[in-house]
Amino acid sequence: MGYLTALAAIGEVAMSEGEFSGKSVLVTGAASGLGRAASLRFAKEGARVCLVDLNKQGLLETAKRIREAGGECVANDGDLANPVFCASAVAMAVEAFGGLDVLCNVAGILRFHALGDVTPENWNKLFGANVTGPFFMMQAAMPHLAESKGNVVNVVSTAAFAGQAYTAPYAATKSALLSLTKSLAMEFMHAPVRINALAPGGMLTEMVNGLEFPADADQALIARYIGLRPPSQPEDIVEPLLFLASDRARSVHGACYTADSGITAG
Rank of each mutant, 00 (worst) to 15 (best):
Y3M: 13
L4T: 05
T5N: 13
T5S: 14
A6Q: 12
A8F: 11
A14R: 13
M15G: 01
M15Q: 14
M15L: 12
S16P: 02
V27P: 07
A31E: 04
G35T: 06
G35R: 00
R41K: 15
A47S: 04
V49T: 07
V52M: 01
L54G: 10
L54Y: 10
N55F: 00
L59P: 06
L59F: 02
T62A: 00
K64E: 14
R67K: 06
R67Y: 01
G70V: 04
V74P: 01
V74Q: 06
D77L: 07
P83D: 10
V84I: 13
V84Q: 12
F85N: 02
F85C: 08
A91L: 14
A91V: 07
A91W: 04
M92N: 15
A93S: 07
V94W: 05
L100H: 06
V102F: 02
V102N: 05
F112T: 09
F112Q: 07
V118C: 02
P120I: 08
P120V: 04
K125T: 14
A129N: 01
M137A: 07
M138K: 03
P143I: 01
G150W: 02
V156Y: 08
T158I: 15
A159G: 01
A159E: 10
A160I: 09
S179D: 11
A185M: 10
M186I: 14
M186G: 12
M186Y: 15
A191V: 08
P192H: 14
I195G: 03
N196V: 02
G201T: 06
M207L: 11
N209A: 15
L211N: 09
A215Q: 15
A220D: 15
I226V: 10
I226S: 13
G227R: 08
L228D: 15
P231W: 14
Q233G: 11
Q233W: 07
P234I: 00
I237Y: 05
V238R: 00
E239F: 03
L244R: 08
A249E: 14
V252T: 09
T258R: 13
T258S: 08
D260L: 10
